[in-house]
Write a protein that binds this DNA or RNA. Structure first.
Lengths: 333, 333
DNA sequence: CTGAAAGCGCTAACAG
DNA sequence: CTGTTAGCGCTTTCAG
């Protein structure tokens, strides 16, 4: 019951196995420099003691930390999906991941600071809203990859979905269904919002239609607000929402107002998040390839760290994919 | 533009300020042992170099790490809300927080392992589904606090909401509105699910009503499935869902089926999450006091670490609070 | 109040 | 193939 048992060190394992510390280190790290016989003996000793290498000590000694810091928004489900891919990709490339959450009460600057203090040699910013200058300053200290936000810079890498193309797909899909009155509930100043607005405008113009944009945001609430104003002022034929969460808010208010989807109005989202696919939601959505995004971000970090600081910032763009479900339909049912 | 500039160390600051490393350390940590004059000088030097203490080195040297590891489910919005409180409470008590996410693809055991490797001296398990024996084993190595899950054990602390009482509140509220046919969509094997079932049964029995439990789960999908089966087999007067996400699934399917809430059926959730409060959702819900839960969990960790290993596991129970909104109403409208 | 010295647990470079 | 040596950047005695 005593917690008197200090956690075992390399020395303890070495003593038990009757070898030197350095040799144990070699075996533990699986690097060349030990005979198979000793490997077995050392591993047995390590197992017996339940030895686990101490990360802090390791970090201190090595010049490289192989630590990727990820700053993300805990409340954003899309970020949670990306996290999974980042964990996977990092493991593949033998990096470790350190998380730091951002919220209303915990600013991105704070999240990044803790990441830096923890010796991360690269930082992954998910949907950061930080000013560009701040991100460039950061990039002077560590490698930075910005995920899901357009940002032209020679110093940071950007991995993102072609938001403009996604918006065009959404509009074209609706136009193809015969819709002519298509409203966009935008994402305000959110990441990718400007590009989606642009794509929407462009596709509408190309189809000879008039743009109508309602101010929105990243969460259900904004979609609901926009839908309420539509219910009051007249329902359009179709709504293209900034993202799935926003679309959910739209859907919900429509449903409650007795507006049928897709009978009276078609609704399309963005992200193709897990929610969109649920049977009862069944939301048509522009899908982002999270596996590609997460994978590319981590791979880019790896390249950048291997290459030193000579690399120019790259803009890696993933193509979105339209996932048609039941929330969009032919005009006039 | 060169990244040739190694990050400054204590030594660099000491050189610039013309003092010893140890003295700089004292100033940086704000502990007694330096004159005000040198404090000012040292701080100026540190600022000039942009010095930030290296956590790994600090950790290595100190016997205590003041690191709290938090294992949580990234996709659970309720966990995101708790995280915020945990960050706050930890900062108050001068602890640092290390995050490790759990998902379908990343088991809790892996999350905990990385936390341990990172020298966390305590671990906070949010809604862990791990077998009790595993948690007890873990508690032999580090202090463990289990959040939002009942678990009788002499070795780990548990901080949770009184789920049974919450369920009783929900049922009594519905009974008070005149409902007699009240269905519970449960949480399966999820944390707290058993207690909420028990509370439901108890309150129903006390009201002389017959229990009817539909299998459910932690997410919208389960609620939707249950609602579909209700739509097919007959709508009850009221539904008490395991949590808000589950309730949302129920609501959505009802809406789509033309079942009016609360006109035809009242719906009540659990957690009082941010979603429940949205104007268009307006879900009556049993609220968990996240500030209390997060605060108590961190405080308990602090006590336990200060006290050594002599403390018995405590069961800290927060009282839930009913938040009445528009999704519940008098029977027969 | 200040500085010198030792060492946390580990790895890298070297010598045997 | 194995063991020794020398730190990583910091904190903590302990003398001055």
């Amino acid at each position: 019951m005593e917690v008197n048992s200090r956690r075992p060190t390399l020395q303890d394992v070495a003593d038990l196995a009757g070898v030197s510390r350095a040799l144990v280190s070699i075996v533990i790290r699986d690097v060349p420099g030990a005979s198979d016989a000793t490997r077995v003996r050392v591993k047995a000793a390590a197992d017996e003691l339940g030895y686990r290498p101490d990360n802090a000590a390791r970090l201190l000694r090595q010049h490289r930390s192989r630590l990727i810091g990820v700053s993300y928004v805990a409340a954003q489900t899309f970020h949670a999906e990306l996290l999974d891919e980042i964990y996977d990709a990092a493991e593949r490339l033998r990096y470790d991941v350190v998380l730091s959450a951002v919220s209303d009460r915990r600013p991105g600057s704070r999240a990044v600071r803790t990441l830096l203090d923890d010796r991360c040699e690269a930082i992954l910013l998910l949907g950061s809203q930080a000013p560009e200058s701040e991100i460039v300053d950061l990039a002077a200290k560590v490698s930075v990859v910005v995920l899901a936000r357009k940002m032209p810079s020679a110093h940071v890498d950007v991995v993102r979905t072609d938001d403009e193309a996604g918006a065009v797909m959404a509009v074209n899909h609706l136009v193809g269904l015969g819709h002519r009155s298509i409203v966009h509930v935008d994402g305000g100043r959110g990441p990718g919002a400007q590009e989606r607005r642009q794509g929407y405008r462009k596709a509408m113009r190309a189809a000879g239609l008039e743009s109508r944009i309602l101010p929105g945001g990243l969460t259900e609430e904004f979609g609901a607000d926009a839908a309420r104003s539509m219910v009051e002022q007249g329902i359009p034929g179709a709504v293209f929402a900034f993202n799935d969460r926003c679309a959910l808010g739209v859907l919900d208010v429509f449903l409650r107002a007795g507006v049928s989807v897709p009978g009276d109005v078609s609704v399309i989202g963005f992200d193709n998040s897990a929610l969109a696919g649920l049977a009862h939601i069944d939301l048509t959505s522009v899908g982002q390839d999270t596996a590609f995004l997460g994978g590319a971000a981590v791979e880019r970090i790896s390249e950048r760290l291997d290459a030193g600081s000579g690399l120019l910032g790259r803009d890696i763009v993933a193509q979105p994919q339209l996932v048609v479900r039941g929330s969009t339909g032919l005009v006039g049912r």
